[in-house]
Simulated scan of single mutants.
Amino acid sequence: MFSKQEAQQLKKEFWTAFGKSFPRKWLLYDTKIKDFSFKFNADNKKAEVSLEIEMKDEVFRNAYFEKIWSLEDILKDYIGDFQKDEFFQLENGKIISKVWVEKNGVSIFNKNSWQQIFEFFVEKMDGFERFYYEYEDFIKDV
């Protein structure tokens, strides 16, 4: 078990190592759609790459989620099997729509699994980005 300070330091080292290993500009928040972003996440049990639709207006959130959902089979070609939740509840109670892929059995606190996480991040985020750029005009047309 790590102290809070040790855990923070390890997380900082992890993200620095990822950035140095794969120095590229990711799409992430630069989708040109407010509250529609791609994210990396890693914790002590898994790694995750996600598309998060965080609009407060449920009508808009639903419309974007339905756009993505209408392209389900195509998205699967880009990122493989994925999970989705139209009403995903964050720890703070906020409801978002989320599409994600995860890799279980890896930990941000185990340096031996970092390379696996990095490769997973690159493969899946690249797939999400290629999908988004290919269907961007369709997705934005809400």
Results as ranks from 00 to 15, higher is better:
Val49Glu: 08
Trp69Gln: 14
Asp77Thr: 13
Phe14Arg: 07
Glu58His: 09
Ala63Val: 08
Phe87Trp: 11
Tyr78Met: 02
Glu6Val: 02
Ala42Cys: 08
Glu136His: 05
Glu48Met: 14
Lys39Pro: 00
Phe121Gly: 02
Trp69Arg: 14
Tyr78Trp: 05
Glu129Leu: 04
Asp77Cys: 14
Tyr78Ile: 00
Gln8Asp: 11
Tyr29Gln: 15
Ala17Asn: 13
Lys4Asp: 09
Val99Phe: 13
Asn41Ala: 14
Lys4Ala: 14
Thr16Phe: 10
Met125Ile: 06
Ile68Arg: 01
Lys67Glu: 11
Ser113Arg: 07
Gln5Asn: 12
Glu134His: 12
Thr16Glu: 11
Glu13Asn: 12
Thr16Trp: 08
Phe65Tyr: 15
Phe118Ala: 02
Val99Gly: 03
Lys124Thr: 05
Trp15Tyr: 15
Arg61Gly: 03
Lys46Ala: 11
Gln9Ala: 15
Glu136Phe: 07
Asp126Gly: 09
Glu58Asp: 12
Tyr64Asn: 05
Leu51Gly: 00
Phe131Gln: 00
Asp126Ile: 07
Asn41Gly: 12
Tyr78Phe: 11
Arg130Gln: 10
Lys56Phe: 09
Leu27Trp: 08
Val59Gln: 11
Glu102Lys: 13
Ser21Arg: 11
Leu71His: 03
Phe131Trp: 03
Glu86Gly: 06
Gln116Asp: 15
Gln8Cys: 06
Trp114Tyr: 08
Ala7Gly: 01
Phe22Val: 04
Asp85Ile: 01
Val99Thr: 00
Gly80His: 14
Thr16Lys: 13
Asp73Trp: 06
Ser107Trp: 01
Lys98His: 07
Ile33Leu: 10
Leu28Glu: 13
Glu91Ser: 15
Lys94Pro: 02
Lys25Glu: 12
Phe40Met: 12
Ala17Arg: 08
Glu86Cys: 06
Glu48Pro: 02
Lys140Arg: 13
Ile108Arg: 02
Lys103Thr: 05
Asp43His: 05
Lys32Gly: 10
Lys11Ser: 12
Glu119Cys: 05
Ala7Ile: 06
Gln115Leu: 12
Ile96Lys: 02
Phe118Lys: 03
Trp69Pro: 00
Ala63Lys: 14
Phe120Lys: 05
Glu58Val: 11
Leu27Gln: 09
Asn112Asp: 13
Phe2Thr: 01
Lys67Met: 10
Phe87Thr: 15
Ser3Met: 04
Tyr133Lys: 10
Lys98Gly: 01
Gly105Glu: 09
Asn110Trp: 04
Asp137Met: 10
Asn92Glu: 14
Pro23Met: 05
Phe2Gly: 00
Asn110Lys: 15
Val99Asn: 01
Lys84Asn: 07
Gly80Thr: 03
Asn62Leu: 08
Lys46Cys: 05
Trp15Asn: 10
Asp77His: 15
Gly19Met: 07
Lys140Ala: 01
Lys12Asp: 10
Glu48Ala: 10
Glu86Asn: 08
Asn44Gly: 08
Lys34Val: 08
Thr16Gly: 03
Asn44Met: 07
Leu71Tyr: 02
Phe121Asn: 04
Ala63Leu: 12
